[in-house]
Computed example of a mutant assay.
Amino acid sequence: MSTTDQQVSEYVAFWNDTLAEKFDRYQEILMNGLSYHSRVPLERLEVAPGAKILDVGCGWGDTAIQLAYKTGPQGQVLGLDCVEQFLDDARYRAVQNGLGNVRFIAADVERYPFEPRYDLCFSRFGMMFFEHPVVAMRNIHKALKPGGELMFIVWRDIEDNPWLGLPKQVVLDFLPPPGEDARTCGPGPFSMANPDVVTQQLEIAGFTDIDFERNDGPVEVGDSVEDAMGFQLALGPAGEVFREAGDEAERQRPEIEAALRDVLAPYEQEGKIVMGSSSWTITARKPEG
């Protein structure tokens, strides 16, 4: 096995052995609380009836199901994710919605043997975690028909996302930043925040007509201060700092939790914690020729 193979396997293993349970625990926040960032572009997205659509990093299947409704019964949607545990929920949702035009496969998007059969590839917060973004983009390019479109949503800088930035600052007041040997799920949520870098990656992968649209809006990051605090210590930049600090984090847990509650409490609206967020909706096209 090559070094690259080992690294990819480690990322996929980390999703499955560490992150999947945490993501499932906070599914309501991750799927519905953050849905503003897919709802806005998907409402505007025009899909031809019968289109074949690929959903990359589809998670629990909510966007794949929306796309299945858009393309209609003559169309097809394939949802890919590296976590089979998420896809069990996705398949259940598809059955509950009576949809026969969507299926889900656990696979590594960087390596899946695509044929050029898709009119559209969509991804909500899945592209940022590829170890080799250009490799993944090239494979997605291979999956699209000539003239096919790629649309994906990624977070902008942490400074534009206080729902992640503020809790990280709080935890770093108590604990050291993660070391270079920290286990990780990939480059991370802000790895595609720079339009110049992402434009170059897409161009190298063969895409044209590249466009970035900023989308700012509220996200619900907990149905109480306690829920939001737990979420931050489980996932995201603050959660990574806490996890990697190990025993020291547990020793200081009461003080860290108290500090997080103080920071999050002012954002309570009708019982929920609502904070500011910012994403890019990026579109690109595979040339016709």
Rank of each mutant, 00 (worst) to 15 (best):
D173F: 01
A249V: 04
P133E: 02
W155A: 03
S277M: 04
M151N: 10
K286V: 00
C185K: 12
D5L: 14
W60C: 09
A13D: 15
M31Q: 14
R253T: 09
F190T: 03
P167E: 05
F114K: 03
T199K: 11
D160M: 13
A64T: 02
E257Y: 00
S38D: 09
E240Y: 04
P189G: 01
P41E: 00
E244H: 11
A136S: 02
R214Q: 12
E270D: 15
G33L: 06
L54D: 00
F86C: 09
A94R: 06
A205E: 04
A284L: 05
R93Y: 10
D157N: 12
L42A: 09
G61R: 03
F122D: 08
R39W: 07
I204S: 07
G246P: 08
S277F: 02
R111D: 08
M151L: 15
R214D: 12
S35K: 00
R93S: 09
H141L: 13
V77E: 06
F190G: 00
A143I: 03
K142H: 14
I65M: 13
R285K: 11
D216W: 00
I282S: 04
V40I: 11
T283F: 06
F212P: 05
T3Y: 13
G98N: 11
G98W: 03
L87K: 08
V241M: 03
G186T: 00
A107K: 01
C121I: 10
P237Q: 04
Q6L: 15
G61T: 05
E250A: 12
S38H: 13
P116V: 10
E288F: 12
D160W: 09
I65F: 10
R183F: 07
R103K: 13
V154C: 14
L150D: 09
G188C: 01
P218H: 02
A249N: 02
P133L: 11
V47L: 05
P266H: 01
H132P: 06
P146S: 10
R124H: 10
E288A: 10
E226R: 00
P116Y: 07
A182L: 06
Q66L: 14
W60F: 15
N194S: 07
K145C: 11
E149N: 09
V225C: 02
V134L: 11
T63S: 12
S9E: 15
G165Q: 06
I204R: 13
G246E: 14
A136V: 05
G186I: 04
G239Q: 05
G289R: 14
G72P: 07
E257A: 01
D24C: 09
L67T: 10
E203D: 13
Y36F: 13
A136N: 02
S279R: 10
L260K: 01
N16W: 08
I65K: 07
V83E: 07
P187L: 02
P176G: 05
D160P: 05
V197L: 14
N215L: 14
D223R: 09
V56K: 08
R243G: 02
A68W: 06
A228V: 00
G72L: 10
H37T: 09
G271P: 00
Q76N: 12
C185M: 14
L67F: 14
M127G: 05
E180Y: 04
T18R: 14
R124A: 05
Y118C: 04
A13T: 13
L45T: 01
A193S: 13
F122G: 02
D196H: 08
